[in-house]
């Protein structure tokens, strides 16, 4: 893959990501913004692939698109009455938010562009799945187990919170 192709693909994905994210946060219809969120996640996954993180990209697709997004859609449906055709949400704090976020992102962008990062020459990316698997079950085995426990707790906790009678 030569540089030009790489660049084109990068700009493509970056554009998908940023634009759909923009729609996510500005669209007033929640269902639409959920769909744009889908494109954002796809774009991010593409960026991961460009960065040589094949496994993480796949996990991103499976968990975010397959799991979290569905969860969010369910949330939308469960919290709005079906008869209510206008599934819309209002906004508050627009002006202070725009100013604040603008300033913040400006500051961040300025900071990261002016700072000189120490980078290393990159090589062609290798498959990461096997290496990640080894690390997860050796050095990070404890964290791995802990994550399992956290997921279990989250499962039980979510069920018990959601079921609680109001």
């Amino acid at each position: 893959m030569n540089d030009l192709t790489y660049n084109i693909i990068f700009y493509l994905f970056a554009a998908i990501t940023v634009l759909s994210a923009f729609f996510v946060v500005t669209n007033r219809n929640i269902v639409y913004s959920a769909f744009f969120l889908l494109f954002t996640f796809f774009g991010v996954a593409g960026i991961y692939v460009l960065l040589g993180a094949d496994f993480v990209a796949i996990v991103q697709l499976i968990v975010y698109v397959g799991g979290i997004l569905i969860l969010l859609l369910f949330g939308v449906m469960l919290t709005n009455k079906i008869t209510n055709v206008e599934i819309k949400s209002g906004t508050i704090n627009i002006y202070p938010a725009v100013i604040g976020v603008g300033l913040l992102s400006g500051a961040l962008l300025a900071a990261l562009i002016t700072s000189s990062w120490k980078t290393f020459p990159t090589e062609a990316p290798l498959p990461t799945t096997a290496a990640l698997g080894t690390m997860l079950l050796q050095e990070y085995a404890l964290i791995f187990e802990l994550l399992g426990i956290i997921l279990l707790i989250a499962l039980i906790g979510a069920a018990s919170i959601a079921r609680r009678e109001a």
Binding site: I92, P96, L104
Partner: peptide, 19 residues
């Protein structure tokens, strides 16, 4: 009592600190 108001305040404090 609105969370989002607080977050706006937090962001502004953060920007002040950054500058």
């Amino acid at each position: 009592g609105k969370v989002q108001t607080y977050i706006v305040l937090v962001i502004f404090s953060l920007i002040i600190l950054l500058f």
